[in-house]
């Protein structure tokens, strides 16, 4: 199989205007992945499936990941005026990397027997722009798994033929696989609450665990 970098070059040539970058894998023994922009991803996926030397005809695993907002500190050198003289000092700046939801596809080729190629697409943020492009028109195998991402992460897949909740029931409000999901208050009265139950009782009643 061609390396991820080679595939990236070929993708850029085949699908003009496609935004694609190589995401390194911190685990050096494993493959890096390709992140693609949403505008031309359907054409890129079709290219990956139909190109005779790639032939990724089998989307094995489709999954979502939730990345929260991350604050990290960055050290910067800055020139400031100290006692009338300009000096270079080091200051720390707090930066926030906005969170996003991600859909990851593991592609293999049944015809040529190679793989995996990992492709990902990311939403703009975690709150009001959780839209991604469904790749179910290219790989039917993504149908239930994209539904599952919609169900558990709240990613809306545009172009999905049947986007409904799949594991949780219709009418359920939240998205339980998100990192900031809060479990519902399902405390039931117990005469002698202890351990976890005591903790739940405390949260439920708002004070020492008694009604």
């Amino acid at each position: 199989m061609e390396t991820v970098e080679q595939i990236k070059v070929r993708l850029e040539a085949a699908v003009p205007g496609l935004e694609v970058e190589v995401i390194p894998n911190p685990n050096s023994a494993e493959q890096p992945s390709l992140r693609m922009g949403l505008t031309h991803i359907l054409a890129a996926a079709r290219f990956l499936r139909d190109d005779p030397s790639l032939r990724f005809d089998y989307a094995s695993n489709v999954t979502g990941v939730d990345w929260l907002d991350q604050t990290f500190q960055e050290r910067q050198r800055q020139r400031v005026l100290v006692d009338g003289a300009e000096r270079e000092v080091e200051i720390t700046v707090q930066r926030i990397r906005p969170g996003y939801l991600e859909a990851i596809y593991h592609l293999y080729s049944m015809e040529l027997g190679h793989g995996p190629l990992v492709i990902r697409q990311r939403t703009a943020n975690r709150t009001d722009q959780c839209r991604l492009v469904s790749l179910t028109p290219i790989w039917r195998g993504a149908e239930f798994q994209e539904r599952e991402i919609y169900d558990l992460y709240g990613v809306v897949f545009e172009g999905h033929p049947d986007l409904r909740r799949i594991l949780m029931w219709e009418g359920f409000q939240d998205f339980p696989m998100r990192k900031d999901y809060v479990e519902p208050d399902d405390y039931e009265y117990e005469p002698t609450p202890h351990d976890l139950v005591l903790e739940k009782a405390r949260l439920h009643y708002g004070h020492g665990g008694r009604s």
Partner: peptide, 9 residues
Amino acid sequence: PRPGEVYGR
């Protein structure tokens, strides 16, 4: 384990 991502099947 070290950081990173892996798909084992």
